[in-house]
Design a protein around this nucleic acid. Structure first.
Lengths: 371, 371
DNA sequence: AACATGTTCTGAACCGTTACGGTTCCTAGT
DNA sequence: ACTAGGAACCGTAACGGTTCAGAACATGTT
């Protein structure tokens, strides 16, 4: 298993051809089209290659010529710790990796730190396409990706015309969830949401901030929820929305604390993610409140931990999001697309999962809308 | 945010230079060495580039010329579902991604299915180096990686002379764990281990199979444990070792069932991973046995779920494994290494964590070795 | 014997860029 | 007036392959 001795100068396809006294074409064919030369010659080529320590055609040179890198890039404007710790992100990653595996294509994680304005890493990535996951619509890395002459698929956000996209119908899902709460009788609610923009704001988010959010998913969930409650006479301006920059259970707990300290009257806390909801659950229990008897808590995503906690939440098929995005990007019948004429948007089904964390408010008479 | 209209033929650096009436070098400099040309000219170049829809230097062509791909590859001969579900593997991945992020280098997941004999994906990956994680010593993909003229770092296994490696001292760790059990008084033990070779064997593993295992880590853990127990007079040939191909909690449970059905006398089950141990815990509880009163169970890895279960286990710093490997591979002072003279092996510390799943056997008198 | 049909191998163009080693021009110093 | 030195720019030669249109030769057909 010893690796070949590194020679002073690496052998190339050309030097191998010279050594053998054949053309470069023939050597190339020996590797790529065995049927184009006699088995004897092919064996001789391969044997000599081994002798000379020629490792086979250089992948980069090949990529240049064939205009195929054999890999796609994933742009994820987040610290990696997020990508690998958040179950929803992980699901997307897994699905995407699966699609790549099926296609025999590499998946390159492109480094792009949140604060980083240097987009050179995007320009330098030798990939045949990009999947962009959950970035704000004003991110410079996103712009750099769109500049590249390769197909791109966006997962979740942002929504851009002319760019393929895979996403659940957040609006419909949130409407369903909102009406679940409305039917239960909740009128005094509070909301915990994830980061709305690249600038940090750990605290209450004004209605203007909500509507100007650069994270499309958060914006949609909030505005949709607002519409549902507006429709039953709740003035959304009075609904407290607490924002957190970091997306962790502890931050969810602290957000819940901030919310309840200022608004002890709320009968339900709607969270735009399960992680935040799990944190809220912790904080609420710490305060000695019972769920759902004293307070209702809902999440979003349908991660495994949420199921374990029997959280009322909206399930979305995260693995399928990644997989669909990968398949769409790698679909051989669609290569080289990217203009508005052929834009494709895949909408995934979500499902309201009513767990044991939602119930009518303590003192409310029920409001029924059904037949 | 609209993307540029795709022209019939992509503009290149050369065509841009021609349009501007400057040399290609100048255009290249405009992008890569702004100090090499006047700001006015540079602006003119960049403006014209925008006008022509030139997306900047092609990454692949650049890589060919500079002999830098700007990415490293990760070879992981496993189904991706494993990589993303096993917390230990995930930790490694996270640490590695972190190191890449720090270096501004991409991380490419190279598709390499377990059964797949086609190693073309390895040959086609345009990367500056490889990290190999946990592959058997006879894997064809590994061989393909070693053929490539780029530096390689192996995490955990296999152990190859001349190839850099990052790994915990499995032998020392297992010895410590073994003596912990011996001191508690256990003499009738059973073992659950992960896959020993690429051929599937869900069941008991003979001593020969253990010693011939192609997965070095498993082999080391088993043989080390064997030595410890041999030293106190336990004939290892009588110790049942149950192997599982898939590494899941459920498989751990089924392995434990198989072990206990055939060997109800064992007082301790040593598992070579926490996942297996958690499965064993489930099975043992299903049988109505109490842990640790009736039976002792130990794991290996120190994953979060193990801590939650208060499992007696060996903690190893998985994130650090990935990080160290990345740093070692990307260390600019060591580029282009790979011969035996400079081989580097980084050994990481492990720690025996005694939880609440290990205790003296029911009927045993204690055997103390300490002072 | 003439011709079609394969098989096997070759020559040259091309992929898009950057490294290298200049040349040219301008300014400041003497 | 002459020159040293730096700034700005350029021409050429790689980088290491793949591809396509044939050439050369052997084989089968009529």
């Amino acid at each position: 298993m010893g690796r070949p001795i590194r020679t002073r100068r690496q052998a190339t396809l050309a030097s191998l051809a010279a050594e053998l006294g054949v053309s470069r074409t023939t050597v190339s064919n020996a590797y790529n089209r065995p049927d184009q030369l006699s088995p004897e010659l092919r064996k001789r080529v391969l044997d000599t290659a081994r002798k000379l320590g020629y490792p086979g055609p250089d992948p980069v040179a090949r990529s240049l010529r064939t205009r195929k890198a054999g890999a796609i890039g994933l742009l994820l404007t987040e610290n990696l710790s997020y990508a690998f710790r958040d179950p929803a992100a992980l699901g997307v990653l897994e699905g995407l990796a699966l699609a790549c595996e099926d296609a025999g294509v590499g998946l390159q994680l492109v480094p792009a730190r949140p604060g980083e304005e240097d987009v050179a890493t995007v320009h330098r990535a030798g990939v045949d396409g990009f999947v962009v996951y959950s970035v704000p619509d004003d991110d410079p890395h996103l712009n750099a990706v769109l500049q590249r002459p390769v197909p791109t698929v966006i997962i979740d956000q942002p929504v851009l015309s002319g760019v393929d996209r895979v996403a659940p119908d957040d609006a419909a899902a949130m409407t369903t969830l909102g009406y679940h709460l409305i039917e239960l009788g909740h009128r005094e609610i509070g909301v915990l949401c994830m980061r709305l923009s690249r600038d940090r704001n750990d605290g209450f988010a004004s209605r203007v901030r909500q509507e100007k959010a650069h994270y499309h998913v958060q914006r949609t969930r909030l505005t949709t929820l607002a519409e549902s409650f507006d429709a039953v006479g709740v003035d959304w301006s009075t609904v407290p929305v607490v924002e957190r920059f970091e997306h962790t259970i502890d931050e969810g707990a602290s957000a819940a604390r901030q919310l309840l300290d200022a608004n002890p009257q709320v009968t339900a806390i709607v969270c735009t993610s399960d992680i935040l909801a799990l944190g809220a659950l912790n904080e609420v229990q710490r305060r000695g409140l019972r769920v759902p008897a004293d307070i209702t808590i809902t999440g979003f995503d349908g991660i495994a931990d949420a199921e374990r906690a029997e959280l009322t939440t909206v399930y979305q098929p995260v693995r399928e999001k990644g997989r669909s995005a990968g398949k769409l990007l790698l679909d051989p019948t669609r290569r080289g697309q990217g203009n508005p004429m052929t834009q494709q948007v895949i909408t995934l089904e979500t499902e309201l999962r009513i767990g044991k964390t939602s119930a009518p408010p303590r003192t409310a008479e029920q409001h029924w809308f059904g037949p």
